[in-house]
């Protein structure tokens, strides 16, 4: 198993001034695997994602990627596969520059990393759009001409441009409608099965995390309270907080929701 590990966070700590945001976080992601990172607002899940991406601070600890420590190294100084770590962000309305065409958006990472010249990068745009099931004439249009779901597909295409081994997805479907959300999640899974990319999938929604993850880490107050196989964590949680989180999410079934609500109340009384 250790052979397959591509990212390993070892005792990662982050301080913002006097605030201790990440507390001794240990986490691994294996090649081709989705690790769901679930927690409530302020739990530090986004901070951890940004630390791995190199756009957030790390106060102490190591983040190993392909056996090199990338903690605190900004993206432009990263070498090799670490340079290809990519991101898909939450809000598809602000993660794409409104005054750039889709083609400019998609070629930017390729040109910035010096992987190809302008012409060669442009030629790759069609393949990228194809991978996310968008028509190739999308290249000459602007983000505002697309719906939320389509914009998120464009953001995914941009993340795929560098053929990454790891994509950090920060709440990538929480701004989308229910039916769009399901389709975008299926796209994530399909791309993973085809390319073998690994995801660190940050979300507040346990249902989403359970749908896409192989393993799930539950964060609270800057630390990981439970980390294990998806089935184990989401069906038979060991930690009280994970149980609370599970029971708090209302199930779309009035009959079962009555039971779940009662269980949540009982747990709240007991706590």
């Amino acid at each position: 198993m250790t052979d397959d590990v591509i990212v390993e966070c070892i005792d990662v700590n982050t301080h913002f001034g006097a605030l201790h945001i990440l507390k001794n976080v240990n986490l691994t992601v294996r090649a081709g695997e989705t690790v769901g990172l679930v927690g409530e607002s302020g739990s530090g899940k986004t901070t951890l994602g940004r630390a791995i991406l190199g756009i957030g601070p790390v106060s102490s600890g190591r983040i190993l990627f392909d056996r090199q420590d990338i903690a605190g190294v900004p993206p432009r100084d990263r070498k090799g596969n670490a340079a290809a770590i990519q991101a898909v962000f939450q809000d598809p309305y602000t993660s794409l520059n409104p005054s750039m065409t889709i083609e400019d958006i998609l070629t930017e990472p390729i040109i910035a990393r010096g992987q190809a010249g302008k012409a060669e990068a442009t030629a790759k745009v069609r393949t990228l759009l194809d991978q996310v099931a968008l028509p190739s004439d999308a290249a000459f249009r602007y983000p505002r001409e697309f719906s939320g779901g389509q914009r998120q597909r464009i953001a995914i295409a941009r993340a795929l441009a560098l053929s990454p081994h790891l994509i950090v997805c920060d709440e990538p479907v929480s701004a989308l409608d229910l039916s769009t959300q399901a389709r975008v999640l299926d796209l994530f899974i399909e791309i993973q099965e085809r390319t073998g990319v690994a995801y660190l999938f940050v979300s507040h929604d346990l249902a989403v995390v359970r749908h896409i993850s192989h393993r799930v880490a539950v964060m609270r107050g800057g630390g990981i309270v439970e980390f294990g196989d998806c089935d184990q964590v989401t069906a038979n949680p060991q930690h009280n907080y994970t149980r609370r989180l599970l029971l708090a999410a209302p199930v779309a079934d009035p009959v079962r929701q009555v039971e779940r609500r009662a269980a949540f109340r009982a747990l709240a009384m007991g706590a």
Binding site: M1, D4, I6, R30, A31, G32, E33, T34, K124, T127, S163, P164, H165, L178, S179, Q181, A182, L185, I189, R194, T195, G196, V197, A207, V208, R210, H211, I212, S213, H214, R215, D229, C230, D231, T234, A235, V251, A252, D253
Partner: peptide
């Protein structure tokens, strides 16, 4: 259709270690 898109009750995915690490473009 909407109820079909609700993500409750999915079967968790099973991780299969990958033999090669090659990532297709």
């Amino acid at each position: 259709m909407l109820l079909g898109a609700v993500l409750d009750d999915v079967t968790p995915r099973v991780y299969q270690p990958r033999s090669g690490r090659g990532v297709a473009a």
